[in-house]
Design a protein around this nucleic acid. Structure first.
Lengths: 240, 240
DNA sequence: CGGGGTGTTGACGCATGTCAAGTATGGTGG
DNA sequence: CCACCATACTTGACATGCGTCAACACCCCG
C-alpha cells in the first residue's frame, strides 16, 4: 500500500487504489454515475468518494431556505465523517455530472486499521473540511457581501489550482448565482449585483460557468483571503 | 485502557486517564490554570484538553472584527485537529477561569496508534466539531437574528444537559452579549434587542450569566433546532 | 469613590432582501 | 432548422433588518 499520506483522495479519484483493494477484499466497492443536479443517495453503511465532477453538501431549513455548507471537487470524500458518526446531517447533490465510488464503511474502517497511511489521509481529510467550515463561518458571519463572494471565489480558484498543480487565470466553475448565494448566505439578486460590482472593478469576470480572475492579488486583498486554512499540498500555489 | 469510545474527553476531563498515561509514558503531559479572558497559548507540538471552564475559538478578520467559530466546555479538545494538520488557524481564549491539560501531540498520536478506542474518540471528537460548524454555517447564513440567537442558546443548553446527564431550565452561561454577537455574526446592540424580544415573548431570560428557559419546546420551535447534529451520548436529552 | 466592562436606549443610515417583470440562453422535440 | 420551454440572469422600485453611533445607566471591584 504505497499511498502518500496527503494523496489518498487523489489516488482514490484515479480509482487505482480502490480497485486494487476491491480485488483483494471481500468488502463492497462500486461506482455510479450521476447526472447534473441529482441527489447523491446516502447509504446507511457506506461513504462515497467523488471521482469526477462537482458536488455540494447543504441543509434545508424549516422555511425551505437552503444553505450550502460545503463544495466538493474530484478527490473529495464529502461524507467521510459518517465513518465515525452514526448519521450524517448534510444532504449531497451534484453540481455537474459526477462519478462516485461507494465504499462500505466497515471496509474503509478496516482499511484504516490496517494502514496508518490511509487512516491519516481519511482523518486529515475530515480535519481540513472542518477548517474550511470554520473559515466559512467567519466569512458569512463577519464579511460584507462583496468580500464574502470574493472570498469564496478565491477559495475555489485556489482549490482548483491545487488540483491541477499550477495557478491559472481561467476556471470552469459550475455554480449558478443562486448556488453562490446559497453558499454565502446571500440572495440571488444580491449575488448578481455583487458580481457586477466585481466585474466593474476589474477583479472577476464570471459568466456561463467560466471564471476569469485578472488580478488575483487584488482579489485576495479585497477578500481578506489567506489560503493557509485549505492546507493544500502545494505551498507554491499561493494566492495572496 | 478501558475508556468507552464516546467518553474519552469526559474521562480526560477527570484527569484520570491522562495521569495514568503520564505515569506510563515518557511523553509530555502537564496542566495549567488560566484566568478568565486569557489567551490559551498554542504550543507547536501539543494539543490541549479543556478540563474545567469555558473557552472559545475565534478568528480576527483584517478589519479587526472577531468571529467566534466554536464554544467549548469541559471535556472538549478544541484543537485536536492539530494532531493531523500542520497548523491551527483558530485562536483560543478562555471565557471563564480554566484548567487545561496540555498533551504532547506525538504522545497522543502514539496513544491513538496503540488504542483503537482512543483513536476513535479523538476522531469522533473532530467529526462532531465539524458537524457543529456546519450547523453554525446554516444558522448564520440563513436565519434571522432572533432565530439565530435562539438556536445558539438551544445548542448550549443541550450541550450542558448532556454534560450533566439531565435537562434543566436554568444554566450558567458565561457569555456576554458581545460574545453572543461574535458567535452569531450580529452586533452587540442587536443581540441586546433580540434578547429583549425573546424575554418579551417569554422564551428566554438571560441576565448576569444566568440563562432561564421557561419553555424549551417553544424555543426550539422558534430556533428550528434539531439536536441530532450534536451527536450527544444521551438520546433522552432531547430538546425538541 | 472612581473606573472599566457590561448592558440599554434612541435616532438614523445603509446593506441587503423582496418582489416583479423582463431578457438572454440553451436544450429538446418537431 | 425552428419553436418552445425551462433555467439562468438582469434590472428597478421598494421595504426592512440590522449596523452604527453616541449617550447613558449599571455594577462590580479595587
Amino acid at each position: 500500500m504505497l499511498i502518500a499520506e496527503d494523496m489518498l483522495p487523489k489516488v482514490l479519484s484515479g480509482g487505482q487504489a480502490l480497485q486494487d483493494w476491491e480485488a483483494s477484499s471481500s468488502l463492497g466497492y462500486y461506482e455510479t454515475v450521476l447526472r447534473r443536479d441529482a441527489a447523491i443517495p446516502s447509504e446507511p453503511d457506506a461513504v462515497f468518494v467523488l471521482l469526477e465532477g462537482w458536488a455540494c453538501g447543504y441543509k434545508i431549513l424549516r422555511d425551505g431556505e437552503r444553505q450550502i455548507c460545503s463544495i466538493h471537487v474530484a478527490g473529495d470524500g464529502p461524507d467521510f465523517r459518517k465513518l465515525f458518526l452514526p448519521a450524517a446531517e448534510l444532504e449531497f447533490r451534484t453540481l455537474t455530472p459526477c462519478r462516485t465510488g461507494i465504499i462500505s464503511a466497515a471496509g474503509l474502517r478496516e482499511l484504516c486499521r490496517q494502514s496508518d497511511t490511509v487512516a491519516n489521509a481519511v482523518v486529515k481529510h475530515i480535519a481540513v473540511s472542518a477548517a474550511i467550515s470554520e473559515e466559512w463561518i467567519a466569512n458569512i458571519g463577519r464579511r460584507r457581501a462583496i468580500n464574502r463572494v470574493a472570498h469564496l471565489i478565491c477559495e475555489l480558484a485556489c482549490r482548483l489550482d491545487a488540483a491541477r498543480g499550477a495557478s491559472q487565470s481561467r476556471y470552469a466553475i459550475p455554480l449558478t448565482q443562486a448556488d453562490l448565494g446559497d453558499a454565502t448566505g446571500l440572495s440571488t439578486v444580491h449575488v448578481n449585483r455583487v458580481l457586477q460590482e466585481l466585474r466593474a472593478r476589474g477583479l472577476v469576470e464570471f459568466a456561463a460557468g467560466q471564471l476569469v480572475i485578472p488580478d488575483r492579488r487584488q482579489l485576495a486583498q479585497l477578500a481578506g483571503f489567506d489560503p493557509r486554512y485549505l492546507h493544500l499540498a502545494l505551498p507554491h500555489v499561493n494566492f495572496a
